[in-house]
Computed example of a mutant assay.
Amino acid sequence: MAFSGKYELESQDKYEEFLEAIGLLNAKTDHKVVTEVVQDGNKFTWTQSIPNWTWSNTFSVGEECELTTMMGSKFKAPVTMEGGKISVQFPQYHFTAELIEDKLVMHCTIPGEKGVTFKRVSRRI
């Protein structure tokens, strides 16, 4: 199933715990995050936005890509897809995204002592 589309936040679980664990609790927002995904084969542009803030990454599945964290730091990591699920290891957490019944479901998992998994579900708009 193609990821391309625009999605609006429907629900999220452990949002504040996740932000606190990565040191971004002051970035908490009550705005509904809009995620826009443009997919052309294995190449993606993934953009998340709220008023006055946008975060975007362009990557190709199956390749090591230069990506940017929410705070603007650059890093390199391979992006994989298995069973329709995109996966990438960010510096502080592991990110996965998949489509489940036309909803974009994202998980950000922090391992170890601070272990928390943030789940965000967005509906196609």
Rank of each mutant, 00 (worst) to 15 (best):
A2W: 01
S4K: 11
S4R: 13
K6L: 08
K6C: 04
L9Y: 00
E10Q: 10
E10P: 09
S11N: 01
Q12Y: 06
Q12C: 03
K14G: 06
L19N: 09
L19W: 00
L19V: 14
E20D: 10
A21T: 03
G23F: 06
L25A: 03
N26T: 08
N26H: 06
T29R: 11
T29I: 14
H31Q: 08
K32D: 03
V37C: 07
D40M: 08
G41D: 02
F44Q: 03
F44V: 12
Q48P: 14
S49D: 10
P51K: 07
P51I: 11
N52S: 03
W53V: 00
W53A: 08
W55I: 10
S56D: 05
N57K: 12
T58D: 05
S60V: 15
V61P: 04
L67V: 13
L67A: 03
G72W: 13
G72R: 13
S73N: 07
K74P: 03
K74I: 01
K74H: 02
K74F: 06
T80R: 00
E82S: 13
S87V: 11
P91E: 13
Q92W: 05
Y93R: 07
F95Q: 10
T96S: 09
T96G: 12
E98T: 03
E98G: 05
E98Q: 13
E98D: 05
I100P: 04
E101M: 12
K103M: 09
L104G: 10
L104W: 00
V105A: 04
V105C: 04
H107R: 13
T109Y: 13
T109C: 13
K114Q: 01
V116G: 02
K119I: 04
K119L: 00
R120G: 12
R123L: 11
